[in-house]
Design a protein around this nucleic acid. Sequence first.
DNA 1: CGGCCTATTGATTAGCCTCAACCCACGTGG
DNA 2: CCACGTGGGTTGAGGCTAATCAATAGGCCG
Lengths: 233, 233
Amino acid sequence: MMTFAEQFDRFAQLHLPAHLGDDAILRFRSLARPVDAARDVALGLDEGSDHLVFVSSGAIKLVAHASAGRNQVVAFHFPDELVVVPARAEHSYTLSTLRKSDLLVFDYASFADLARGDPAVLRSLLDTARSSLSRSREKSLTLGRKTATERLASFLVGMAHRIGVEREGLTFIDLPMSRRDIADSLGLTIETVSRQFTILRDLGIVRTVGKSGVQLVDLRALEARAGYLTEAA
Amino acid sequence: MMTFAEQFDRFAQLHLPAHLGDDAILRFRSLARPVDAARDVALGLDEGSDHLVFVSSGAIKLVAHASAGRNQVVAFHFPDELVVVPARAEHSYTLSTLRKSDLLVFDYASFADLARGDPAVLRSLLDTARSSLSRSREKSLTLGRKTATERLASFLVGMAHRIGVEREGLTFIDLPMSRRDIADSLGLTIETVSRQFTILRDLGIVRTVGKSGVQLVDLRALEARAGYLTEAA
DNA sequence: CGGCCTATTGATTAGCCTCAACCCACGTGG
DNA sequence: CCACGTGGGTTGAGGCTAATCAATAGGCCG
């Protein structure tokens, strides 16, 4: 549990330019609504407008909903990251916590209006949007054209970059999301995800530790199975 | 074939703020590189840096490449739209024309640097990125969780909004892309796309006219088959 | 009118999903 | 301290959707 001051300072340090005056910072600060949510909670955001959410601690998922109860995890986000949460469109979106999290919630329109006074803030927001766009496009390729094994391999490589830690020379990942979340992110079922874990484990490429731990024994082999384009065009 | 002046004026009108001074406009103008490409041409963009591409006329596709020659169409774009084309990352991207097109190509970094002087330009860029992000997230849901029929129905509804024209009270679409492009956009094969067209045709929901024409006879029925979430959460 | 490329249709196969049972880690309470 | 219960995860058998392989039809160009 972080204090609001700690959270906002961290946010300002990462997403607001250093040169910003005290009064400008205070205005942004007044827009921030702190949300301290337990594990596995859906945030009740107003679906009528866009939001910006800063992850101070914990981990979250952004989920899109289709008919018949089908869900697609559109993005996972981790501490220090800023997320653009869209209003309801053809489909509706839900933001949920994967574990106990401290968040700062902004109304997008207000934030953007305030940012109009400083190009650097907009530039930073634009960078956030662009990196989300890149990840989303990568996900399209994964969902549209990759096999189940490739999807899990791509997922693990991505998570290794984002939340992996070095341990005894190997990368270790403590996955905050359940098999269901992984399945909903990769467009598969939990059974298929489980089977792919078994395959990678039997090949000696990864080792699983409990329910959430994954040790990447052979990162090269994992990348080779991720379906990346190897040669230059 | 549009002149450079016509193209840039159109671009400026849509994506640059009205209040911009003449000298600032000239600086943006000096960054624009006109490209007049025939049908089905891959633009040779430097893969080492990001680009912005404005579509003056024609139609284009942004394609992501995986191993084994598998392609995923990540986005289609039409006249008056601005596209963010990323540098090579885990996968490489290609921008290709669907038909004869007039384009303006900008180096992203130069453009963004110049935009630093005017928040309104950045705001406009941010809006562009956000709408691309929204469409990409919708695509993730389609690719991850929808059946073949739902994918084609969603695709047709989307195209109706973007390039459909009213004709005799019905929406008519002249699709600039081939069945292969549609398949690569929906994560299916051309045969499956073709079969889904046959199904929708036999149901009396759409009528096909030649290879590229589609008449939406029953838009409601099409939307009902698109897998949208109907009730509010 | 002829040739070519794209689209459609058909038969079979493969990969993932569905349904079902079992296992295991963890938390609880006797 | 251990028996039990619970929920997530794994494993197995069979079915179904879309892919693959193959052949035909049809629009569009010269």
